[in-house]
């Protein structure tokens, strides 16, 4: 049908060169259409799964006061034995309080 249409046009144009050009173009377009059809892959529509908002188990913030006390006790024997050490142990655990 396409060829017939083109032939009709070429008759209308009534020149040999034009005929050749139109035929060449028709072949190229047909080949391109065919090749494209072969390589076209159909991608099934799979909707992206909606991420489940998993709420993690509650994590308790460290009790820096208790940790610093514990470290101080291990360091020098009892809570209150070294303020310098206690202060640094606390700041290492909760640096925002010490900035």
């Amino acid at each position: 049908m396409l060829l017939a249409g083109l032939k009709k046009i070429s008759l209308i144009l009534n020149t040999n060169t034009m005929k050749k050009i139109i035929l060449t173009l028709a072949i190229i377009i047909s080949a391109a259409v065919l090749l494209n059809a072969n390589t076209l892959t159909v991608v099934p529509f799979n909707p992206i799964p909606i991420a489940e908002n998993v709420i993690p188990d509650a994590v308790d913030p460290p009790d820096c006061w208790a940790i610093a006390d514990e470290e101080e006790e291990m360091y020098c024997g009892y809570v209150g034995c070294s303020f310098f050490f206690w202060e640094q142990a606390y700041c290492a655990c909760d640096p925002w309080q010490c900035d």
Partner: peptide, 13 residues
């Protein structure tokens, strides 16, 4: 840096 400060506190800052 925080660990280093604790280390220094252990020695005597």
């Amino acid at each position: 840096a925080s660990d280093l400060r604790v280390a220094m506190a252990m020695l005597g800052p």
